[in-house]
Design a protein around this nucleic acid. Structure first.
Lengths: 207, 207
DNA sequence: CTTGTCGCTAAGCGCTCGCTTAGCGTTTTC
DNA sequence: GAAAACGCTAAGCGAGCGCTTAGCGACAAG
């Protein structure tokens, strides 16, 4: 009685505190996969955390792996969109790099739970699903590489190995999801700001 | 007949291509834990890869978790030793940083299999074992932090936030274990050399 | 030659896993 | 208002899990 229907995928009421059963299952899976890993999580764990019986999971999803795949795909698509939007927000190489690094870093801290699944549970995906996700990852890397290369060509960045430098920038942001703790002394925005400074140094932009 | 006894812990003949049963089990566990994760690996997987029956594992180790613990502890101790040795090799802050970053990075590429277990399977450890390992990790971080702080105090490094900068340096090296592929175009030494350049920029050392 | 130890295996125990089936009450459809 | 569809649960299936037990052959000590 207390929960009014919001539609099945229901994201209207804010996307936190999921109300529909489908969303509650995803939220429970995200939490569990992130802290115990895909193989360390049972379907009973997920169903219980969503307040349902073990069989309920299979009313909405066809397997545990499908849940992982959906979480992973949405997470990757979200990151690709974030990187592309930030890169498109300016014409100046420095401004673009800063926008991307700032958003990428803050996102990996704020959403470290989802980011851990995205980056560390790839091997648990079906081969076919992994191939699709690998494509999105390649696109993300390509965006970052383009960002660095354009800056180098414009004479604003200076690095002897643009591809590896771009990889290092992504790497730095991804690893935030591994070490970030909510109880830590740094807010996601603090880390993002410091990482902007590091990014400028890494690409060899004049101060 | 072809295998002569080498002693139980046997490391004399080169430490690659383990000959004793104990070592073969560890080698098989390392390979499997790294590619499928601790929970994705069964004791039967490990025993089969070591060419033995499932029960043989328990002749030498008391549980699957003990294997993980031994691998993780040795890996962490090895890294701490590596960092300390490199840091002690010189008095000049720049030289010390370069030695540590070079060795740390190359090691995480060359030994990415073990490094993946060390950095990504912590949550599968028993709480007591995890506490012990967390202590070693803290010591490693402290070494890196000291390295940066000494450089800043000497006026050779320039960074607004030494602690986060030290964390970023470690982070960069650790994440190499995630993305490094043996088939890739860069050798561990190439990556290490480029990361030395990045490290100097990150700490704000004059070129 | 006997006895004890060591490294190992065949068999299997109890349990949990991912997932299925049968069925129930509520809501929607015509 | 009957029938179909929906969201969910209780029960359970077959398989694989971590780990144990009983015992075997090779070798060493006395």
């Amino acid at each position: 009685m207390s929960e009014i229907a919001v539609g099945r995928g229901g994201g209207l009421p804010g996307k936190d505190a999921p109300v529909g059963a489908r969303d509650r299952l995803v939220a429970a899976a995200v939490e569990s996969f992130a802290s115990k890993g895909f193989h360390g999580t049972s379907t009973r764990d997920i169903a219980a955390a969503a307040g349902m019986s073990p069989a309920a999971l299979y009313v909405h999803y066809k397997s545990k792996e499908e849940l992982l795949y959906l979480i992973s795909r949405r997470g990757h698509e979200r990151t690709l969109r974030l990187v592309r939007d930030c890169a498109a927000a300016s014409d100046d190489p420095v401004e673009r790099l800063l926008a991307v690094v700032r958003a990428f870093t803050a996102d990996h801290a704020r959403d470290h739970t989802r980011a851990r699944i995205v980056n560390y549970e790839l091997s648990a995906l079906d081969p076919e699903h992994l191939r699709e996700i690998a494509g999105i990852r390649r696109a993300i890397q390509q965006e970052m590489r383009g960002l660095v290369e354009v800056g180098v060509e414009a004479g604003v960045f200076h690095t002897s190995h643009p591809r590896m430098t771009a990889l290092a920038l992504l790497s730095l942001g991804i690893d935030v999801a591994r070490w970030y703790r909510d109880e830590g002394e740094w807010a996601p925005e603090d880390i993002a700001e410091h990482y902007c400074e590091l990014a400028l140094r890494i690409v060899g932009a004049p101060r």
